[in-house]
Amino acid sequence: MSIDITGVTKRFGDFVALDDVNVSIPTGQLTALLGPSGGGKSTLLRIIAGLDSADTGSIRIEGTDATSLPPQKRNVGFVFQHYAVFKHMSVAKNVAFGLEIRKRPKHEVTQRVEELLGLVHLSQFAHRMPNQLSGGQRQRMALARALAVEPTVLLLDEPFGALDAKVRKELRDWLRRLHDEVHVTTVFVTHDQEEALEVADEIVVINEGRVEQIGSPEQLYDEPANDFVMSFLGEVTTLDGRIVRPHDIEVELAPVPGAVEGTVTRVLRVGFEVKLTVATAGGDVTVAMTRTHLRGLGADEGSRVWLYAAKGAVTVAGTAVKETAVAG
């Protein structure tokens, strides 16, 4: 295991940011810390980097106890949400910073900087100042800067959070490909479940300072540990006291044994998808299906329908009933 976090607790005044967190992050993988804003995931990342300190608990990086090491001795690369570029240095100087601090020979620094700028596709911008770059380019530069020192772990704090949707998507794919090339143990924080599911090998779901579940994207999606994980990783609705995904509900116009009876109160068409709101004795249920499916079914507003969870659908007992909690 590359990073071992044991019993980490952190308080800011009365607010408990992290409550006895235990996580092991595997070597060479891309791990996402996923959770809602204010859930403690950034705090955990900053504690790993040494930018914040834990009240109790310990951090081991590659077997070395790093709990009381200052950030400059942990050999971690850190990428900040707002880039934290060195404004008074050129792109090449920014990337060279860590190497110059380590007093590497000049030719080695030049060569490594060239290599890294090539890796992040910024070779032609080497002599620009950071304020002449776009947000996406700045973040790639920050990434090259963090990689320059050959860190044991690379930590990214909401790396694409400040970018617009299109650039985000591009950088996300690019980060995945980069990781496949470089293979450095990488941890990134995100509140975007789509980003985590698409990019990460492993996801740690953190909510209210606690780890809710650790697993691969498939595991989290197919076997959510609880209603929070299920509702955070996609749209959910409550059918007969259980949480289920809206597209996993079957609709029939005739009674079916064990099905829940209801009336369609609203039909909302969004692109290829249709969302039905069905009033049942247990409250409103949202059902998603394709337009074609709805046409074949022949239901409309006012129709009496019978609902049941599709065979093989993942359902979780709904302790806290949250109607279509949308992550993101």
């Binding site: 980097a49 950030p71 400059q72 850190f78 934290a84 060195f86 860590g98 800067r145 963090a146 320059a148």
Partner: peptide, 12 residues
């Protein structure tokens, strides 16, 4: 931010 970045890059 910049100071933290410098620290994480190994600067004392």
């Amino acid at each position: 931010d910049q100071e933290q970045a410098a620290r994480s890059l190994g600067a004392n």
